[in-house]
Amino acid sequence: MIIKYFSWIREGVGTAEESLAKPGSVTTVSDLLDHLSGVSEQHSVALKERVFIKVAVNHVHVRHDTVIGDGDEIAIFPPVTGG
C-alpha cells in the first residue's frame, strides 16, 4: 500500500509518501495507524492525537474502522482548512 501524509503530519513524520506491504496485524485504518506509530519516534508523535487524524482511502474520506487492502492508497492528514 502507498501511504501519503499532508500538512503538519507530513512535516512531523518527515516524509510525504512511503510504501508498505500490509502487515498481517493490519485490517482497518485504525490498525494501520497503530502500526505506523511503531515505525519511528516521529511517526509516533505525529500520529498520537487520533482525534486530529483524518484518513482517505483511494481518494475518499473514511472512518478509522474502515477495512483496507494491500493495493490501497491511504492518505493521512489533519482536518482540512481550505476555502
Binding site: S7, V80, G82
Partner: peptide, 8 residues
C-alpha cells in the same frame, strides 16, 4: 468545501 476538500 471547507470541511471536506483536502486543502491545508
Amino acid at each position: 468545501l471547507k470541511s471536506n476538500a483536502p486543502f491545508w
